[in-house]
């Protein structure tokens, strides 16, 4: 996708265009998110309910604090866009609430070109932070950005994010674009770094064998497990290694050939990193060709409802 300001082309590493589900999922997943509201903000009410309902500390940049207070929305801090960016870069900073450096920065309404610069700073110098932009217009420097939307579409997207934030269980998916995939194995390496043992493996043809992320109540692996070690965590199946006996029934049952019993004697399957501190799955971030993709939707497929 072209950047909203069409010449804002930073380089080879550009962020993902995110759906409402991915945005909501990231916000829910974050341990210490921060919401940064700038002078061009047009959806203050929405932002206020986000901050209140998700208990997210808020920074007002520029002089927007005045307008926010008039709307009954008291920012936790007032800082220049560059000042909060500078603080977010520092591993020493303990965040707005003193609870530790933030893991997710949500930008909304900082002037497009200034926001692009701040996101670039974080992309390059704050690997510990995931960034989302909720300003209308694709920001390639954000890890997760909304696409180029007109006003009506943007309102719709925010409404969908609201819905998605309120649901318990997401529907996950993951694909690898085989045309883009160069069979480098970076995803496997990143998975191993994150989880100790790689959950994804390469097939004989050297492409990653992914989990289908079957609906928990339909998944063959979970059904096959006699000790109920494969549990549903908000829509994704996670192996409880305490309970797993390493019997291999799941491995037998999985139609994709994904789950397997590792050298440590327990089963391993992809969780899209929901059981780690990462906000974006490690393999997705690691894939430099942008071949690895994941999806999170708030809607269950029709078939799911029957079950």
């Amino acid at each position: 996708m072209r950047a909203y300001q069409s010449a804002n082309v930073p380089g080879p590493h550009v962020g993902k265009v995110a759906s409402s589900g991915i945005i909501a999922n990231a916000i829910k997943k974050a341990m210490r998110p921060v919401l940064i509201i700038g002078s061009d903000i047009k959806h203050l009410d929405w932002m206020r309910s986000l901050a209140e309902e998700m208990d997210i500390p808020t920074v007002a940049t520029a002089h927007i604090a005045g307008a926010m207070r008039e709307n009954g929305f008291n920012p936790d801090r007032v800082l220049g866009a560059i000042e909060i960016t500078n603080l977010l870069e520092s591993p020493k900073w303990t965040g707005i609430r003193g609870e530790g450096q933030h893991d997710l920065a949500i930008f909304a309404g900082v002037k497009y070109y200034l926001e692009a610069q701040m996101l670039s700073a974080l992309k390059n110098f704050a690997p510990h932070i995931t960034t989302i932009t909720l300003s209308p217009g694709y920001q390639p420097n954000a890890d997760l950005s909304i696409p180029n939307l007109n006003e009506g579409e943007f309102d719709e997207l925010l409404a969908k994010v609201t819905d998605a934030l309120s649901i318990e269980s997401f529907r996950y998916s993951q694909t690898v674009n085989l045309i883009k995939c160069t069979e480098c194995g970076d995803c496997v390496l990143a998975c191993e770094k994150e989880h100790g043992i790689a959950r994804i493996r390469l097939s004989e043809k050297q492409v990653p064998v992914l989990c289908l992320h079957c609906l928990p109540d339909k998944a063959k692996c979970a059904a096959a497990c006699e000790v109920d070690a494969i549990r549903d965590e908000s829509g994704i199946l996670v192996v409880d290694s305490e309970l797993c006996t390493g019997c291999g029934a799941c491995e037998e049952a999985c139609p994709a050939g994904h789950i397997y019993v590792g050298s440590d004697g327990v089963a391993h399957k992809c969780t899209l990193c929901v059981d780690s501190e990462r906000i974006i799955p490690a393999c997705v971030t690691a894939c430099r060709d942008g071949a690895m993709m994941y999806g999170v939707t708030e809607k269950r497929k029709k078939t799911a409802k029957k079950g």
Binding site: V9, P10, G11, P12, H13, I82, T85, N86, E89, A116, Q117, M118, S120, A121, N124, F125
Partner: peptide, 9 residues
């Protein structure tokens, strides 16, 4: 100095 690259290249 606090940097914000406008181009990563």
């Amino acid at each position: 100095p606090s940097y914000a690259p406008i181009c990563d290249m």
